[in-house]
Computed example of a mutant assay.
Amino acid sequence: MTKRSLEQRLEDGTVIVGEGYLFELERRGYLQAGTFVPEVAIENPEALKQTYRDYMLAGSDVVLAFTYNAHREKMRIIGKEDLLEPLNRNAIRLAKEVAKEHPREEALVAGNISNTNIFDPEDENSKVQVREMFREMISWCKEEGVDFVNGETFYYHEEALIALEEIKRAGLPAVITLGLMGENILRDGYTVEDSCASLKGNGALVAGMNCFRGPATMQPYIEKIRNKVEGYVGALPIPYRTTEEHPTFFNLPDGGCSCTLPTETTFPTSLDPLYHNRYELAEWAKEAHDIGVNYLGLCCGASPAMIRAVAEAVGIETVQSKYSPDMHKHFLFGEEESLNEANLTYRTKA
């Protein structure tokens, strides 16, 4: 089959996007929490390839090059600016290798740029620095032949707009998603729906939200975006049980924790008890799909099984759907006549 572009796939239906490599690779033991720099692309390329592969086969139409936080400022902070270009290029090359392995249709490869954490709407020099950082990363994306660039987790509209301008300058399709903090408004005063409308008007193929918020506290804003924006809308929440009182995962409490945590909050390394299960995530995916979200996935904390549940919820059979849960032959919950009757009594007693 000829490899379809992102726009063609969006025209044909829903595009599933598996993100969340940052937390997943930390969980697998290949990335340091705190610095959260994707040195795995240099130090453990096979581990990164396997993670790419797991998310792709679970249903992701996109292999997102793992370059989140791999910008010049972050590399300066950790004293490894010499790794900046090799890390970016290798992350993309590994993604391209894995994308070609898809047994049905070669997956899309997306370059990745993100919030820089130095943007200041009152400081013109910071805007120049941000633009330069985006420009060099996008130039490597262009040279390595990505299908589109994903600019994500922006909590300033103007920073997102700079990202969009630089992606367009390189002649590549752009997906731009916003990270909404607990103030419920972007830090330069834009609502997410107004920002997305502006981004779409300025040429983004997809505009929407990702990260920071779970389904419960992201979906109301996705609905506002969907009502305001013409065209393709993206939604990639985190898989944690955020609430109106605690709308992001930055301050989620865990009332059952009996130990002293190394940080003041459960974020980022003590969030484990606060996960949504895959069935809750599937319900959200169907809700988002039903209102017309076209670019659908999960962000930090997502596992391949969760991505598969999201894909299946909107009617997509993934390569790994053959491993989806089936309790028919389970020793406690099965329905086979040959199962031990005594065991079956433990369905409610065990």
Rank of each mutant, 00 (worst) to 15 (best):
E230Q: 10
S195R: 01
E81N: 02
T2I: 14
S60E: 15
P273R: 08
R169V: 05
P173K: 04
K49Q: 07
L87I: 07
T263N: 01
F333L: 14
E132P: 04
A174F: 04
K49Y: 05
H246L: 02
G315L: 15
C259D: 03
L261R: 13
G182L: 03
V319Q: 02
T265K: 08
W140D: 05
H71T: 03
F331V: 12
A91E: 11
E159F: 05
K349M: 02
V98S: 08
N343M: 06
E159I: 07
L199A: 03
L83Y: 14
N184C: 11
V233D: 03
T248V: 01
S195K: 00
Q32D: 04
V37L: 07
S114L: 10
K100A: 15
G301K: 04
N251H: 12
R76F: 09
L87A: 04
R93K: 15
A65T: 04
N125I: 14
G214Q: 03
R9G: 15
L261V: 01
E159K: 07
K142H: 14
V37W: 00
K329G: 10
T153S: 10
S303V: 14
L344S: 07
F250V: 03
Y323Q: 03
N343A: 14
E337D: 12
V314I: 07
P237F: 06
S126N: 03
P45N: 03
Y52D: 09
F333S: 06
E105S: 13
N277F: 05
L281N: 04
K200N: 02
G301D: 06
A170M: 05
S321C: 00
R27I: 12
L180E: 02
